Simulated assay, not measured.
Amino acid sequence: METARTGRKWKLPFVLGFVSLLVVLGFKAIQASTRLPNDLSVVFVGFTNNPTGTFRPIRVIIPPTGATGLCALFRVGNVGSNRFIAFETIAGEQKTERGWEPFQVSGVGGSVWTPGYSCLYAVPWPTGVPTNATWRLQLRWNREASRWGKAINLKLRRELFHDSKYYHATSSEVIP
């Protein structure tokens, strides 16, 4: 027969272990929520002159405004494992002795990119930026609602599940 004192001996370690587990899980959740995702990869790979858009063997995308003369080639990809993304270039930045200075650029953009998809983007050399200058792209991107979230939205005819907030990404540097 178990006494009240013996029952308390088992409860205390169990409660302390359970509380410890909750604290550890709480810290892990906070750490994961403060870590920025990195589903968009934009890497400078080289230069080209007067590129044309192609689908094979490697897809090369030209901006709607065209790409003539010297262009930088960026490999752009969705490196996330399970979500579609949309993205756009918000600015270019030139490296100067004062730091990174923004400028307008006709850059990279896309929507509904599947996980693992990538291609090359030809970005015309920015007007007003010397050909010996170092520069990079600033982009913003977001994840689309999950497949299940979209299906539920469609079924209910209401948008309960939204696309994620916007994140910012920086390309690797174009170094002549």
Rank of each mutant, 00 (worst) to 15 (best):
I85V: 08
K11L: 10
N49W: 14
R5H: 08
V105A: 09
S146G: 15
W148C: 01
L139S: 03
T89I: 01
R157C: 11
N78F: 03
E2L: 08
E88T: 13
A32Q: 14
F84G: 01
R59Y: 00
D39F: 09
I30G: 09
P115L: 07
P63A: 03
K28E: 14
W125K: 08
E97C: 03
R75M: 04
G7R: 15
W113A: 06
F74D: 02
R75G: 02
S20D: 06
N50W: 05
P102G: 04
R98F: 11
S33P: 07
D163W: 02
T114W: 14
W148F: 12
F18E: 14
P51L: 00
T52Q: 08
V174L: 10
R157S: 11
R59S: 07
F27E: 14
G53D: 08
E88D: 02
L73E: 12
H168P: 04
F74R: 02
E101I: 10
H162D: 08
W148V: 07
S118E: 00
G7V: 11
V79M: 04
T96C: 03
R147K: 15
Q31N: 11
T6C: 07
K28S: 09
W141E: 07
R136T: 04
P57Q: 10
G92R: 05
C119D: 14
N153S: 06
P64N: 02
I30M: 12
R75L: 02
V123C: 12
G7S: 15
H168N: 09
R136S: 02
E159S: 09
S41H: 13
V43D: 06
Y117R: 07
K150V: 07
R147W: 12
A29C: 03
T6Y: 10
T96E: 09
F47L: 13
R8G: 03
G46P: 13
S20E: 05
P124M: 02
V60D: 00
W100R: 00
N82Y: 15
M1K: 15
W10F: 14
I61Y: 02
E88K: 13
N132G: 13
K11D: 04
E159G: 08
S33V: 09
E144T: 15
T34E: 11
W100G: 05
P57F: 12
V43Y: 10
I30F: 13
R136N: 05
I61T: 02
R147T: 07
E88Y: 07
T52E: 12
T68P: 00
A133V: 15
S41Q: 10
M1F: 15
A29L: 14
T34L: 15
P102Y: 01
R158T: 01
Q138H: 12
P130N: 11
K95A: 10
G7D: 15
T3Y: 08
Y167F: 13
S20H: 12
V45N: 04
G26V: 00
L16Q: 05
G128C: 12
W141S: 03
V43G: 05
W141N: 01
P63M: 06
V23D: 06
N49M: 15
F18L: 09
M1L: 12
C119S: 13
P63T: 06
F47C: 11
I90V: 07
S41G: 01
I152E: 02
A122Q: 02
Q138K: 10
N38D: 14
R8N: 06
G26L: 00
K95S: 07
I61K: 00
S33L: 09
N50K: 01
L73N: 00
R8H: 12
L73D: 03
S171N: 04
W141T: 03
N38Y: 13
N78E: 12
G128V: 00
W135P: 05
